[in-house]
Design a protein around this nucleic acid. Structure first.
Length: 402
DNA sequence: GTCAATTCACATGAAAGAGACCACGGTCTAGTG
DNA sequence: CTAGACCGTGGTCTCTTTCATGTGAATTGACGA
């Protein structure tokens, strides 16, 4: 009987009318035919990169802008077009795109070079070789290929924060030593302060050219959404004001177009699930809540057990007190919790770090305060919305088995 | 009453250790012709 | 003779611990009015 019901569900699902025509147009990896409101920046990048078509080495570029301002998109778009021409003209040119933020892929010196070497067509072990060795392999491969490269390093600040600017120094120096192949670097970062903390030598060579991406305003986001919505949705599924509201939401926090697109997509999904056939403003509100919830649940479930214990300590301390949870209290609860669940106890130093990591993830709010004579500590409060709290609590209890 | 010194309870940094992974080269072993 | 199993070595990476130093305001206590 149950099986029958399931079958019917799937059949109904197939028959169901979706509001989407091509959902991919709303994903952040999608590259549209034309990029709106970035004509200036596209032109600048094109100008700088154009010499590559004549076999010269273009200047390095440093691109700065807040999240969701189209940095990655514009860089990819421009280089894609460039490659198109280069192929037609038979100019040896390649673009390598690396996102330095991706864990276990390119967030350390070794891994970045390993990734690059693999991209060049020589697979290398993900670990195990000395870093020097990997550089050698990389250089050998580079010389063998004998063509020019444009290397896009996305979220480059993450890489440098973790491993220092050694990598960049080495990369920028390659051009001086090896004449067979030239490398131009496009560094993308959303932290402008980052460039100031670099070694002066690296700084001057990395930011030969600097391009700033200003945030979009609400109107611009609107037109972007309209452009994407045209391919993404079927005709007439958007109610009056939906695009405007999405844009307004996103413009509220610093013109993040990515967020606006996500909001629109999830709104569509919500409408689909309700079989509404049309996206209304109500769906947007719902979608916003859902995005937040999903994000928090996602973050929490992917944390390791020790983190769960710490978070559970904070949560169990939370309802008794309207405010003011301190590190020491959390640590005490945490210790007894470890005893109950026979887990090894971490030092306070470490727990302190874990709490500040939760703070960065936006799950708790931890402000360092001084209580005068009674010392200095963190004032911790939960940032999880009350509706989500029971879910989180369940997840944690299951994980630490209480 | 005023003001500098003290004090608390952690925060924050740096360095180093433990243990999981991994590649590589050498050695051993069993199977094959 | 050879392929594969197995070991030791040397490397990276992440998570932790250890040790050291920093911090900011309530409290204290000396001082002077």
């Amino acid at each position: 009987m149950a099986e029958r019901g399931l079958e019917m569900f799937f059949e109904a699902f197939l028959k169901k009318e979706s509001v989407f025509f091509d959902k991919r147009a709303l994903q952040s990896s999608y590259i549209p035919e034309t990029i709106l409101h970035r004509e200036e920046q596209t032109k600048q990048i094109a100008n700088i990169l154009a010499p590559a078509l004549k076999g010269d080495k273009p200047s390095n570029i440093f691109i700065y802008g807040k999240t969701g301002t189209g940095k990655t998109l514009t860089a990819k778009y421009t280089t894609q077009k460039l490659i198109g021409i280069a192929e037609r003209e038979k100019v040896p040119l390649r673009v390598l795109y690396i996102n330095c933020k991706l864990k276990r892929s390119a967030d350390t010196e070794y891994r970045l070079i390993a990734q690059l070497t693999t991209e060049l067509g020589k697979p290398v072990p993900p670990t195990g070789l000395p870093t020097e060795e990997i550089y050698k392999l990389f250089l050998r491969e580079l010389n063998k290929q004998n063509q020019n490269y444009i290397l896009i390093l996305d979220e480059i600040d993450q890489l440098v924060n973790k491993t220092g600017d050694n990598v960049l120094y080495n990369l920028t120096r390659i051009n001086e030593e090896h004449t067979e192949s030239q490398i131009s670097i496009i560094g993308i970062s959303n932290d402008i302060m980052f460039i100031d903390n670099l070694d002066p030598r690296v700084r001057s060579s990395l930011s030969e050219e600097e391009i700033v991406f200003p945030p979009y305003n609400a109107l611009q986001i609107q037109s972007i959404l309209n452009q994407r919505a045209e391919t993404a949705f079927n005709r007439d599924v958007l109610s009056q004001g939906v695009i405007e509201k999405c844009a307004a939401y996103a413009a509220r926090d610093h013109g993040d177009a990515r967020r606006a697109l996500e909001l629109l997509r999830v709104s569509g999904e919500v409408a689909d699930r309700k079989n509404a056939g049309k996206i209304t403003i109500g769906h947007i509100d719902e979608a916003e809540g859902k995005i937040d919830r999903d994000r928090i649940i996602d973050i929490v479930t992917t944390q390791p057990k020790q983190y769960h214990l710490v978070l559970y300590s904070i949560i169990s301390l939370h309802p008794n007190r309207s405010s003011n949870i301190f590190t020491g209290e959390v640590y005490d609860i945490y210790k007894s919790l470890c005893g109950k669940t026979s887990t090894s106890i971490l030092t306070q130093r470490r727990v302190s770090d874990i709490i500040s990591e939760f703070d960065m993830l936006g799950i708790v709010n931890a402000k360092v305060i001084s209580k005068g004579r009674y010392g200095r500590t963190r004032d911790i409060s939960l940032e999880i919305p009350p509706q989500t709290l029971p879910r989180i609590k369940n997840i944690l209890e299951e994980s630490i088995r209480i």
